[in-house]
């Protein structure tokens, strides 16, 4: 059994906990982190806006790329320690949600956490990135709450019955 746990800043402990709880011993667990290009890209853009500054070695985007790679390795190490089982650490970069879907191809399970508005049950509890992954995942998905799920009371009342046909 091949299981992929998508490790994202902020919500990853819930995914690792889910892997410990629901994935049978002996399964191949891959901890996957994807670094987006958008954050270093924005820094490259800001530096590009400073016309005439020359020195390409001062471009903060390049430093952000290095810092991002280091921080991803650190995050995966922390997640692997938290898991406490043999696992593979996989780091990818690119458009985050698309990379996750691509990595999940051929897997038996993808574990991810909700990352939207977590005060209510409902569609807004998925952010745009995780919504894309859930909608396009080519394998079974285990979708977990990063903390205890909110109560049923938050569900809005059902819409009123349609008027009876005459």
């Amino acid at each position: 059994m091949t299981v992929i746990a998508w490790i994202v800043e902020g919500t990853w402990p819930a995914c690792v906990d889910a892997a410990r709880e629901h994935v049978p011993e002996g399964a191949d667990i891959t901890l996957l982190h994807v670094t987006g290009h958008d954050v270093p890209g924005a820094a490259h853009g800001a530096y590009a806006g400073l016309l005439g500054r020359g020195h390409r070695d001062r471009d903060p985007g390049t430093r952000l790329e290095h810092l991002g790679a280091a921080s991803a390795r650190q995050l995966l190490r922390a997640a692997a320690e938290h898991l406490g089982r043999p696992c593979t650490q996989s780091e990818r970069s690119g458009r985050i949600e698309r990379e996750v879907v691509a990595a999940a191809e051929g897997a038996d399970l993808l574990i991810l956490a909700r990352d939207g508005d977590r005060t209510h049950l409902g569609p807004k509890s998925l952010g745009p990135g995780s919504r894309f992954v859930v909608d396009h995942a080519p394998c079974p998905v285990l979708l977990v709450w990063p903390e205890a799920a909110p109560g049923l009371a938050g569900i809005p009342p059902p819409p009123p019955d349609p008027p009876p046909h005459r």
Binding site: E9, G10, D38, V39, A43, A46, P60, L67, G68, A70
Partner: peptide, 25 residues
């Protein structure tokens, strides 16, 4: 801010384990 502060802010977000995008933007 662009050259000197942005990398520090990114590193701070990473150290806190939070997503860096809002802070870098």
């Amino acid at each position: 801010t662009v050259v000197l502060l942005t990398p520090v802010v990114f590193a701070t977000a990473a150290r806190l384990g939070t997503r860096p995008k809002p802070h870098v933007y």
